[in-house]
Design a protein around this nucleic acid. Structure first.
Lengths: 465, 296
RNA sequence: GGCUGGGUACUUCAGAUGGUAGAGUAUCAAAUUUUUAUUCUGAGGGGCCAGGGUUCAAGUCCCUGUUCAGGUG
């Protein structure tokens, strides 16, 4: 018993966990924090009561925003001999079939009636319900349940759930990357434990997190990022254990050219101009620190408030620059470590999904891959990928190029009522995938280029001869 | 004006289509003295519509303008008042071709619903064909009959208020084609066969659910129909748009000749024209099941 | 009074003619210098006002209330 309890432990909701709330097809990612008011689907509540329960538990939202685990309903819809019509030929849409007014319904709600009870009231006061067909009655109840049942399910975050959440909630933030397309990417790029994968994305960290989930904390992920720093808000939501983050590295793309050219300077002792300057700064700071107490004394002696303020300002400034310096140093060390990871040019996979024109990104980052390794590029539009395809064919060094998009369709499956739901085609973005191959270094670049169309030319000469 | 023949000028009593934008238009009954409000201002029928050519640009009270179009079944489909779910032009186009409709065809239809398909059928079979349409809901049957009259196609159509599964189409041995849009089409297959000419013809059944299709196909086969085939047509509409993609900054490239304009490149972006399909297409409408009644 | 068109992000908006998953303000973060702040870059934040009725077992459906705008008498 105790053992099973321990086993269960990892499936239980804990304070501080990142979780996903679900109601119907709507998701929202939140962190469990004590007494934190959560607003979801225009309802507010507290997640405190969820702590200790198993993941995937559904809760009723009580008054005061307290959650109550939903009791398992046994024989929910007691199958009384139901009264139902055979068709709708005698139903007239005159808007008079519901006897309850809006005020009546509001009153029922205020009286604290449960969703199920309100629905029962609506049915009992409908003059047409019993004449509807069995299927129409089902649909009516389903619609009302959606409106009146105040429940929320707490889920453990996964790539599947977060991808669906982002697509529904903030598609712009993930460049409209649809979940079926993300699934293709992870498989096409052969993401698995123990590999070294390059990721360039502007999808809020969703793609990065998805890759990390598939690596299970083994191997290394290098995030190539544009601008001032990597964006990882989405990675947080995955709630990975701490050791996963040890496998995550970052490298700013603004240094890619330098790294490729071998001119990236990551050593601290190099007497480059930059280092000299920072050295000077350090010395000055030391001097200032020595002077500080004196200036403090003088200012108090003079009893000039302005001076005091000035001093404090300076103090803060210094502290700031000091912190900054430490940060810079740390950054430099990290950069050096990642640069050496990249310089080996033996990465196992490359995943690109961004709002940028992907062509130069792809051509640049492919150089860090070992031969015979998969890569995949996502773009919201197909034109940039056509350009990538063309460039790669000209350039050589890749095979098995495929430009794809996928369509996605959900289905309603009910007895005698099975049919497709919405079709999502287009708008989910496009993929270009392929595999790197060794380039022939003995031949000059020009000769390589000429090599690609060679088979065709050969054919032509053959026929001519 | 009639739905089966163009007229040049807008006349009192016509149905005109006021085109406000590509996704918003309204059908208006033209009446001497009447006026119509739009978001661009008011349209006065006597001065703005009557006597104008169809296709004219009409200036509204507030300086805005709209186009006034001659009705067609396709325009009617997008602005008719719904009493039921309706068939849209993509399905209608498929049905018209696969039922082999043409001027002179005799067609049986049930249920009539809001008459979206009926108008398209009438346009195709005019001036010598006939549509027998059956609707079991009395108010719906009456309403659509009124519309046929207003649209001046009532001479081409007979509306019957009865249950096609029980009582059939009210005619036998005359139809070149039969169309079923009812919950239990398999119960009407016998009547469909009876309504058709002995020389044979085509039948179509529209159903949202696959189980309905299975039962219908079985019934069609039992009744000796041939070439039984079910299909679905999906339309993708594309928006043409100009988008711009930023170019990434890889830093100065030592291997490339130094350029003075590297800073400009940092903020550079490329613009391109592309098509963006809507991310969600209209939901599933239904499966179209076709079959041929062989010549006896 | 009758008519027409709107209500989604914490908040405020989104085209007089093919731009409603797009933004601004505010917030937060990085960079910068001019430091109780400035400038600039980026990020987080979205399920569509409320209620009812209807369509086949698919809404590109309808009505009422509320609120805002236009326009008409």
């Amino acid at each position: 018993m105790a053992d099973t309890g321990d086993e269960d432990c990892q499936y239980r909701i804990k304070e501080g966990d990142y979780v996903v709330l679900k109601r119907g097809d709507i998701f929202k990612a939140v962190q469990i924090q004590p007494r934190k008011k959560v607003i979801f689907e225009k309802q507010w509540f507290f997640l405190d009561n969820a702590v200790g329960h198993l993941y995937s538990t559904t809760f009723d939202i009580g008054s005061g925003g307290a959650l109550q685990p939903q009791k398992l309903k046994e024989n929910e819809s007691c199958s009384d001999a139901k009264e139902a019509g055979t068709d709708n030929r005698h139903i007239v849409d005159d808007g008079k079939s519901q006897k309850l007014t809006r005020d009546d319904i509001e009153t029922l709600k205020e009286q604290g009636l449960k969703g199920q009870e309100i629905i029962q009231q609506l049915i009992e006061n409908s003059s047409t319900f019993r004449d509807k067909t069995e299927y129409a009655q089902d649909k009516y109840i389903k619609k009302k349940k959606k409106k009146y049942e105040n429940t929320v399910t707490v889920l453990r975050p996964t790539c599947r759930i977060l991808a669906m959440m982002y697509h529904g909630r903030e598609p712009g933030k993930i460049c409209h990357l649809r979940y079926d397309t993300l699934a293709q990417m992870l498989t096409l790029a052969n993401i698995h434990a123990g590999s070294k994968v390059l990721v360039f994305e502007t999808c809020a960290g969703l793609v990065l997190g998805a890759v990390m989930e598939r690596m299970g904390g083994f191997g290394s992920v290098i995030q190539m990022y544009p601008g001032g720093g990597p964006v990882r808000a989405g990675v947080e939501s995955f709630g990975f254990p701490a050791h996963f983050h040890d496998t995550l590295h970052e490298f700013p793309i603004c240094h890619v050219n330098a790294l490729l050219a071998g001119t990236l300077d990551t050593t601290a002792k190099e007497p480059s101009a930059d280092e000299n300057q920072s050295g000077v700064v350090a010395e000055e700071e030391q001097n200032q620190r020595e002077v500080e107490p004196q200036s403090m004394e003088t200012s108090t002696a003079d009893a000039v408030g302005d001076d005091q303020e000035k001093n404090e300002k300076e103090k803060r400034k210094e502290a700031k620059t000091q912190v900054k310096k430490l940060k810079l140093e740390e950054k430099r060390k990290k950069l050096a470590a990642v640069a050496s990871l990249l310089e080996a040019r033996n990465a196992d996979g490359l995943v690109i999904a961004s709002r940028f024109q992907p062509c130069s990104v792809l051509m640049g980052l492919l150089k860090f891959l070992a031969p015979s390794r998969p890569f995949v590029v996502y773009s919201q539009y197909k034109e940039p990928l056509i350009e990538c395809y063309t460039k790669l064919r000209e350039h050589g060094g890749t095979v098995n190029l495929k430009l794809t998009d996928s369509w996605l369709r959900h289905y309603q499956v009910l007895p005698n009522r099975t049919h497709p739901l919405l079709l999502m085609s287009g708008g989910g973005g496009y993929l270009l995938s392929g595999t790197t191959v060794a380039t022939d270094h003995q031949k000059p670049a020009g000769a390589q280029r000429a090599e690609e169309p060679a088979p065709k030319r050969l054919k032509l000469t053959d026929t001519e001869a | 004006m009639s739905f089966v023949e163009y007229g040049d000028l807008i006349q009192d009593g016509d149905i005109a289509i006021v085109y406000l934008s590509h996704d918003s238009m309204m059908a208006v009954k033209v009446q001497q003295g009447a006026q119509t409000q739009t978001r661009y201002g008011v349209i006065r029928h006597s001065t703005d519509l009557i006597g104008q050519r169809y296709g004219s640009k009409v200036t509204c009270s507030k300086g805005g303008w709209v186009h006034v179009l001659h009705p067609t079944p396709e325009l009617w489909t997008v602005c008719l008042p719904h009493r039921t779910q309706i068939l849209y032009t993509t399905d209608i186009a498929t049905i018209t071709m696969m039922l082999e409709l043409k001027p002179g065809s005799i067609v049986c239809e049930s249920g009539t619903g809001s008459g979206s398909l009926s108008h398209a059928i009438l346009r195709t079979i005019a001036p010598t064909g006939h549509l027998h349409t059956v609707e079991f809901h009395q108010q719906r049957a009456e309403k659509v009959a009124e519309e046929f009259k207003e649209h001046r196609v009532d001479h081409l159509v007979t509306v019957r208020n009865q249950d096609v599964c029980k009582d059939g189409f009210g005619v036998t041995g005359v139809a070149d084609a039969v169309f079923l849009d009812i919950p239990k089409p398999w119960e009407a297959v016998g009547h469909a066969k009876a309504a058709m000419r002995k020389q044979g013809g085509r039948v179509c059944s529209f159903s949202p659910c696959i189980e309905q299709v299975q039962k219908t196909c079985e019934a069609l086969a039992d009744q000796g129909f041939q070439e039984i085939s079910t299909l679905e047509v999906l339309l993708r509409v594309h928006d043409v748009r100009t988008v711009s993609l930023p170019l990434p900054d890889f830093g100065p490239d030592p291997s490339a000749p130094a350029r003075p304009d590297t800073k400009e490149q940092n903020h550079a972006s490329v613009t391109l024209k592309t098509t963006t399909p809507p991310r969600e297409m209209p939901g599933h409408t239904g499966y179209l099941t076709f079959a041929t009644k062989p010549r006896l």
